[in-house]
C-alpha cells in the first residue's frame, strides 16, 4: 500500500482520542481512538449494536461526546464551523419525502451548506450538481422522480447529494444496506472515482462486497470498543474477529433500552 508522506497529525480529517459517547445516560462508546488521515478510505465494521452508527454520529456532530476529544481537520468539533468540508450520507433506506421531488432537486439540496440565503443557484452550484450526478452514474436520471428509482439508485442519489457540497471528507453510514449487487458495484465505482481524486472516506458497512479493493484500513467495532484497527480485513476475517471475542449471548441489543412502562426494567433484570 503506497501513501503520500503523512500530513501533520493536526490536519487529519478525523481524530478521536479516548472518546466516550452516551445515549440516554448509558455509555455506548467507550475509550474510542480513531484517526482517519487525508486520502484514506476507512471502513467501520462490526455487528448490529456494536456502535458503528453511534461513532459516525459523534464524528458528524449529531451526538455529543461525553468524554475525550473529537477533532475535525484539526479543530475541536465544538468549535468546528466549516461544515461544508464534510459530506454526510445518513443511514436511511429511501431518498423520498412526503412530496415528490426529482433526482436533481434532491442532489441540489446538497448545496445548502454553500449557498447564501435568498440567492438563486449560480453556475457553480449547477456544475457541482452535474458533476455529482456524473460520479454516481445517474446523470441520465436527473429529471426522474426519486420515488421511481430502485433502493440502490436512491442510495446513489443520497451519495450524490453529499458530493454536491464538494466535501473534503465523506462519511457514509451503511450505504450498501439492502442494495443489490449491480448497485453495490455502481456505489463502489463512484467511491473509487472519489478516492482517485484524493477524497477522504469513512464508511460504515455491513458487507464490503465490491468495495474491498478500495479500502486502506478496517476498524472493527464490538460492543462500543474498537476491537481491531489495521490493514483491511476480508469479510470472513472481520466476522471471525468479533465472533472470537463473543463471550456473552450473540444477537442484537439496543443501546438505550426502550422502557415502555416504568416497571419494565425490573422484569427485564430477572429474565
Amino acid at each position: 500500500m503506497t501513501r503520500s508522506p503523512a500530513p501533520p497529525p493536526t490536519a487529519a480529517p478525523v481524530v478521536l482520542e479516548q472518546v466516550s459517547v452516551s445515549i440516554g445516560g448509558r455509555p455506548i462508546l467507550r475509550d474510542v481512538d480513531l484517526t482517519v488521515r487525508t486520502g484514506d478510505m476507512v471502513t467501520l465494521l462490526g455487528p448490529n449494536g456494536s456502535g458503528k452508527s453511534t461513532l459516525v454520529r459523534a464524528v458528524t456532530g449529531l451526538l455529543p461526546h461525553a468524554r475525550g476529544s473529537v477533532r475535525l481537520f484539526g479543530t475541536p468539533i465544538e468549535n468546528f464551523a466549516d461544515w461544508r468540508r464534510l459530506g454526510f450520507v445518513p443511514q436511511r433506506s429511501t431518498a423520498t419525502g412526503g412530496v415528490p421531488a426529482t433526482v436533481r432537486e434532491v442532489v441540489a439540496s446538497g448545496r445548502v451548506g454553500r449557498r447564501r440565503l435568498l440567492r438563486p443557484a449560480g453556475p457553480a452550484d449547477r456544475r457541482a450538481v452535474d458533476s455529482a450526478l456524473e460520479v454516481v452514474g445517474l446523470a441520465d436520471r436527473a429529471t426522474h422522480g426519486v420515488s421511481q428509482l430502485s433502493g440502490g439508485q436512491q442510495q446513489r442519489v443520497l451519495i450524490a447529494r453529499a458530493l454536491a457540497g464538494e466535501p473534503d471528507l465523506l462519511v457514509l453510514d451503511e450505504p450498501t444496506a439492502g442494495v443489490d449487487l449491480p448497485n453495490q458495484q455502481a456505489l463502489a465505482d463512484a467511491l473509487g472515482r472519489l478516492k482517485a481524486r484524493g477524497a477522504t472516506i469513512l464508511l460504515v458497512a455491513h458487507e464490503i462486497g465490491p468495495m474491498a479493493p478500495l479500502i486502506d484500513r478496517s476498524v472493527v467495532m464490538r460492543d462500543g470498543w474498537v476491537a481491531y484497527d489495521g490493514p483491511p480485513l476480508s469479510q470472513e476475517v472481520a466476522s471471525h474477529t468479533h465472533h472470537a471475542h463473543d463471550h456473552d449471548v450473540a444477537g442484537d441489543h439496543d443501546h438505550a433500552p426502550h422502557v415502555g412502562s416504568p416497571f419494565d426494567w425490573e422484569r427485564r433484570g430477572r429474565a
Binding site: 456532530g61 449529531l62 461544508r84 450520507v89 445518513p90 432537486e105 434532491v106 439540496s109 446538497g110 445548502v112
Partner: peptide
Amino acid sequence: PQLFAVASDQDFARVAG
C-alpha cells in the same frame, strides 16, 4: 432550498451546517 433540505432530511441538513 434550505427549507427543502431540512424538511427532507434533518440529519443531513444538520451536518451540512
